[in-house]
Computed example of a mutant assay.
Amino acid sequence: MRSSKTAMDNLKSMLVVPLSVTAAVTDDVIELPKQSEDAVQIDENLAPQFILAFCLAHGRRKFFEIFKFFDKECDFVLDIIGQVYMHDAHCKSKKYTPDQRLFYHQTHSAPLMQTLFLWLNNQLVYDLTEENNGLGQSVKYMLRNWRMLTTFLRVAGAPLDNNWAERAIKIVIRHRRNSLFYRTSHGAQVGDCLMGIIYTCQQNNVNAFDYLNTIQRHAISVAANPDLWLPWNYKQNVAELPELAQAA
C-alpha cells in the first residue's frame, strides 16, 4: 500500500483552483486581464491594471426584487436584459469566437442597451420616479456603473456576469462549513484536495466517484504521468490499457 504522503501528492497534482481574473482571450484582442465582479468601490490606483466588467445579473436582480411594487417599469428593464442574455446564449450555441461574439452583441444588443440607458436616464431627468425609492435606487445603480456593466459591448470575451465565479465560491464556502468537523489539519488538507477534484469532475461532466476509484487503482501510473490522468482525459488512458479497462 502506498503511503498517505504519496497519495496526497497525487491528489495535489490534480487540484484545479478557479481563478478570479480571466486571462486575455487572445493576445491580439486583449492585452490586459478582465475582472468580472459586483459593482463595489474600486481603488483608483488598481483600476488601470484591469478591464473592469461588472455583473449585469446583479443589476437585473435589483429590478427583479422590486417587481411587485413597480411591475411595468421592471418588466421593461427585465425584458431588455433578457433579450441581451438570449443573444449571448445564441453566441454560445453557435460557438462564436470572442470577436464574432463581440460583433454580434454590438449589432443586436447595443441598440437594446442604448434604449435602456435612455429610459433609465429619463426616469431621473424628468422626475418619472422618486430617486430614493426602490426603483430610483435601482436606476441609479445601473447608471452609476453603466460603463462597467456594458464592457461586453466593447471588449471581446468580456462576460455578461460573474455567476460562474459565485457558483465556484459557494463550493468553497460549503466545504469550509464542513471542515469544522475535521479532526486534524491533515484531514482538512485532504478534504481540500478532494473538493478541488470533485468540483473539477463536475465541471467536466465526469463521475467523480468513478474517477477517484480509478486513480486509486492505478496510483503508480498516476504518479508517473499525472497529466494523463486528469478528469477530462483519464478515460482515454483506461481504454488504451487492457488491464485497466478490465479493472474499471
Rank of each mutant, 00 (worst) to 15 (best):
L120I: 05
N122K: 10
N122L: 07
N122T: 10
Q123T: 02
L124E: 02
V125H: 08
Y126D: 13
Y126H: 13
Y126N: 15
L128A: 04
L128Y: 04
T129R: 06
T129F: 01
T129Y: 03
E130D: 15
E131I: 05
N132R: 09
N132C: 15
G134F: 05
G134W: 04
L135Q: 06
G136E: 05
K140F: 09
Y141L: 07
Y141P: 11
M142H: 01
M142W: 06
L143V: 10
L143A: 11
R144D: 15
R144P: 07
N145S: 06
N145A: 14
N145D: 11
W146E: 14
M148T: 15
L149R: 06
T150N: 13
T151N: 06
T151K: 08
F152A: 13
F152G: 13
L153C: 08
R154E: 15
R154D: 11
V155E: 12
A156W: 04
A156H: 11
A156C: 07
G157M: 09
G157H: 06
G157R: 10
A158V: 07
P159S: 09
L160Q: 03
N163G: 04
N163W: 08
N163E: 09
E166R: 05
E166D: 08
R167M: 09
R167Y: 02
A168F: 01
I171W: 11
V172Q: 05
V172I: 09
I173D: 13
R174E: 09
R177I: 12
N178Q: 09
S179P: 08
L180H: 10
L180M: 14
F181P: 05
Y182G: 11
R183G: 03
T184R: 11
T184F: 09
H186T: 15
A188R: 09
D192N: 14
D192Q: 08
C193R: 02
L194N: 04
L194S: 11
M195S: 13
M195W: 03
I197N: 00
I197V: 13
I198T: 05
T200V: 08
T200I: 02
T200R: 03
T200P: 00
C201E: 01
Q203Y: 00
N204Y: 03
N205Q: 11
N205W: 10
N207R: 01
A208N: 04
F209C: 13
D210C: 13
D210M: 14
Y211E: 06
L212Q: 00
L212V: 03
L212S: 03
N213R: 09
T214H: 01
I215N: 05
Q216A: 15
Q216E: 15
R217V: 00
A219K: 05
A219W: 02
I220L: 08
I220T: 13
S221N: 06
S221P: 00
V222D: 01
A223S: 10
A223I: 07
A224P: 08
N225P: 03
D227R: 10
L228K: 10
L228Q: 14
L228T: 12
L230G: 06
L230C: 11
P231A: 12
W232Y: 05
W232D: 14
N233A: 02
N233Y: 01
N233H: 02
N237D: 09
N237E: 14
V238H: 02
V238Q: 00
A239Y: 03
A239T: 04
L241G: 05
P242M: 05
E243P: 03
L244E: 12
A245P: 05
